[in-house]
Amino acid sequence: MTKDRIVLLDSLRGLGVLGILLCNAPDFAVPPVLAESAAHWPHGTSAATLSVWVVTQWLFQRKFVTLFAMLFGVSIFLVGGERSDLERGAILRRRLGWMVVFGLLHGFAVWYGDVLLSYALAGFAVMLARSWSARRLIRTGLGIWIAVSLLMLVGMSIAASMPKDSAQQALETAQELAKAKAGEAQYSGTFLQSLIQNGKDRLAFLPAEPIIFVMTSALMMIGLGAFKAGVLTGEASDRLYRRLLVGGLLASALVGGLFIAGAVMGLPRGLGLVSVGIQWALAPPTTLAYVALMVFAARSKVWSAIPRALAPVGQMAFTNYLAQSLIMTFIFYGGRGLGLHGKVDRPGLAAITVGIWIVQILWSRWWLDRFEMGPLEWVWRRLYRGPSPLRRPALATA
């Protein structure tokens, strides 16, 4: 049973790390001010472009980073154990401490959209609650999530309802586009230029860390609570999984309807703000619907191949996440490889994403047939726990 549970968690983690890439792809390809914008997307609003944008916002955006955060909350308990276990608690603190280092290096030296730092900082808070009951964790996490989401929805609704002077709006748009053009020139320049611009954009994101810390901590609590309740281990009842699936499908239908309506109506600013707010607020139930689908797939003879294929990707999630950044910056950043920043439309980004999915599914299986863990997992583990074997014993003695 323990082995089955680990496989399911790895499958969910693999789904999360692959799903995140489609959401992150525009952030590698264009300056951050344009990445999630449909109205100001530099390649226009063709039917194909808008279709990829709608599908991404509807089925991917917020869902998989939410799943990843929930699963990181589980790892805090799996590594650190109960709060009374001082030895494992010390290991957990070292693990999170080294994750801070990796997050700073990744964010400033590779890609500004790093989440490792946010997860590590939230982890230091959630580790204090890791011995709470499942009910307390879920109630606290949901309470925080709902409260902050309501505040955000109110703020976005007020912003959407406030009339804007057309001249002022045109000026703000022009300033944003000018900023994006300047960033584009830097990302398309030399290695040093792209590195400096990446660092500037990373610094620009740091003021948002407090709200990210709060929301990520809430998701980690929900995830750990769901784990303790058996939801993330496949041990919950079929009835509960069906309820999660129905609730998530209803939430997803609302989100999808809003973004489809926005695309059909010409991308009105007010509807766009409200859509993003509702998308954010409903991320947990839609994410748990994906969990339910994965559980049902794991129990099915026909569909069980999907979680089996995803499990190695999840077992190497740290390696695969950082590898995605290295591959994408090689493709798009100047001085690192192909230098295609600003030159690829959304359909092309989707094609690149699918290609990376296939490569990571295949290479993860190949690697784990030969080694105990991913290469970066091995480095990380050595740093916080000490020497660990990498090559599988049968191959090491061959």
Score class of each variant (00 low, 15 high):
Arg5Tyr: 05
Leu8Trp: 08
Ser11His: 05
Leu12Ile: 05
Leu15Ser: 11
Gly16Phe: 01
Gly16Lys: 00
Ile20Lys: 04
Phe28Glu: 04
Phe28Tyr: 15
Ala35Trp: 08
Ser37Asp: 14
Gly44Arg: 10
Val55Asp: 07
Val55Tyr: 02
Gln57Cys: 12
Leu59Gly: 10
Gln61Asn: 15
Arg62Gln: 15
Ser75Ala: 14
Ile76Cys: 10
Ile76Phe: 03
Gly80Met: 01
Glu87Thr: 13
Gly89Leu: 03
Arg93Gln: 11
Phe102Leu: 15
Gly103Val: 06
Gly103Arg: 00
Leu104Ile: 15
Ala109Glu: 01
Tyr112Thr: 09
Ser118Glu: 08
Ala122Pro: 08
Ala134Lys: 02
Arg135Thr: 15
Ala147Ile: 07
Ser149Glu: 04
Leu150Asn: 10
Leu150Ser: 10
Val154Ala: 14
Gly155Gln: 05
Pro163Lys: 11
Asp165Ala: 09
Thr173Leu: 13
Glu176Arg: 14
Leu177Met: 15
Ala178His: 12
Lys181His: 11
Ser188Cys: 06
Gln193Pro: 04
Ile196Arg: 13
Gln197Ala: 14
Asn198Leu: 08
Ala208Tyr: 14
Thr216Gly: 02
Ser217Met: 14
Ala218Pro: 07
Met221Leu: 15
Ile222Asn: 08
Gly223Val: 04
Gly225Pro: 09
Ala229Tyr: 01
Val231Phe: 07
Glu235Ile: 00
Ser237Gly: 11
Tyr241Pro: 07
Tyr241Glu: 06
Gly247His: 10
Leu250Arg: 10
Leu250Tyr: 04
Ala253Pro: 01
Gly257Glu: 03
Leu258Phe: 06
Ile260Trp: 12
Leu282Asn: 09
Pro285Trp: 11
Leu288Trp: 03
Val291Leu: 08
Val295Ile: 13
Phe296Ile: 01
Ser300Cys: 10
Val302Gln: 13
Ser304Asp: 01
Ala305Thr: 13
Ala305Tyr: 11
Leu310Met: 13
Pro312Arg: 02
Val313Leu: 11
Met316Ala: 14
Phe318Asn: 02
Phe318Val: 04
Leu326Ile: 15
Met328Gly: 00
Ile331Lys: 03
Arg336Trp: 15
Gly337Phe: 12
Leu338Tyr: 12
Gly339Leu: 08
Leu340Ser: 05
Asp345Phe: 10
Arg346Pro: 10
Gly348Cys: 09
Ile358Gln: 06
Val359Tyr: 12
Val359Gly: 05
Trp363Ser: 13
Trp366Val: 00
Asp369Glu: 15
Gly374Pro: 06
Pro375Lys: 01
Glu377Cys: 05
Trp380Leu: 06
Pro387Gln: 06
Leu395Val: 08
Ala396Gly: 05
